[in-house]
Write a protein that binds this DNA or RNA. Structure first.
Length: 289
DNA sequence: CACTTGACCTGTCCGC
DNA sequence: TGCGGACAGGTCAAGT
């Protein structure tokens, strides 16, 4: 599900909602969703206090006062939703946008805090996971060692962006954009949206992309991701933020999931096909091979 | 090493 | 209404 803007939206919400709360208990129903040693849970999660909520690429990092960290990947359908009160729902309640109370059948991990509030990890497809790891060991995780730079960092430049693609020169630009070791956090939505912005066909070989095109792609990727964060991310039927609310970026999408509609730049009908193994949307007039 | 494909799961939608 | 197949915002382990 979530790409960088959605994970960042969840991070910001969690930061406001769970900082300084103390963990009372944890429940799970699936070892793949929560594959942690019992003695670590008992010794370093229970009774710990949330001291920070960070993000790297599409991974959330919830730091605990015990020098352990909850490392969380939402994959396709994961959600982290904070619920202050599981009893009363309805108009005016902070979670009134939820169509039903949590936990539900997709809840696979649940944290209860000392004040009675809960953090639910819901995951329809069970690809996501929550791992409890010593904070100092987080950088040693294989993914963390190989993941590329954060594209929205102020000191990340267009020339650095272009240089990252060097070792993926024989694949398509879309496959390379989706490769987390090239640049962190890009997924299917923002790959299509940024390629449309830069007028690049997703099947173009990386080796054929000009310096100017890399500069345009860099600029548009940052613009589109910053806009998406400002709009609270993109929501399909599975994505909601930490308060249970949907994001509105899809109201601003130019090509993603808009096949059959007009290109907002030239009016040509947007088409969908497969590229890099993923559903891919382009304007066939603006983006040519 | 670089690249592509299948697998991991569950739910939904679309055509017969 | 039922059934089969494709597909869904991600990544990893295999295969070539």
């Amino acid at each position: 599900m979530p790409e960088l803007p959605e994970v960042e939206t969840v991070r910001r919400g969690l930061h406001d909602l769970i900082l300084k709360r103390r963990v009372a208990s944890v429940w799970h129903d699936n070892p793949k969703s929560f594959p942690n040693a019992e003695h670590d849970v008992a010794g370093f999660l229970i009774d710990s206090e949330i001291i920070d909520v960070r993000r790297r690429a599409k991974i959330l990092l919830i730091d605990l006062s015990t020098d352990y960290t909850l490392v969380i990947h939402l994959k396709m359908t994961g959600q982290l939703v904070f619920v202050a009160d599981t009893v009363r729902f309805g108009a005016g309640h902070p979670n009134d946008s939820l169509v039903h109370a949590l936990p539900d059948k997709s809840t696979h991990v649940s944290f209860e805090f000392k004040d009675g509030s809960h953090l639910y990890f819901n995951d329809q497809r069970k690809f996501g996971w929550v791992k409890l790891i010593p904070t100092l060991e987080v950088p040693d995780i294989d993914f963390m060692k190989k993941v590329g730079p954060e594209p929205l960092e102020a000191d990340f430049t267009a020339s650095e962006f272009a240089a990252r693609f060097a070792r993926r020169s024989k694949t398509s630009i879309k496959a390379a954009l989706l490769d987390q070791t090239v640049v962190a956090g890009v997924g299917n939505i923002y790959a299509d949206e940024s390629l449309w912005g830069a007028r690049i066909h997703p099947k173009r070989l990386v080796s054929s992309i000009t310096k100017k095109e890399f500069e345009d792609l860099y600029t548009d990727l940052r613009e589109v991701m910053n806009l998406a964060i400002a709009k609270g991310g993109s929501s399909n039927h599975t994505y909601i933020n930490a308060e249970g609310k949907k994001g509105s970026y899809m109201d601003f999408a130019r090509v993603f999931r808009r096949e059959g509609l007009e290109c907002p730049r030239c009016g040509t009908t947007i088409i969908k096909f497969r590229a890099a193994g993923r559903g891919t949307h382009i304007c066939p007039n603006c983006q040519k091979i």
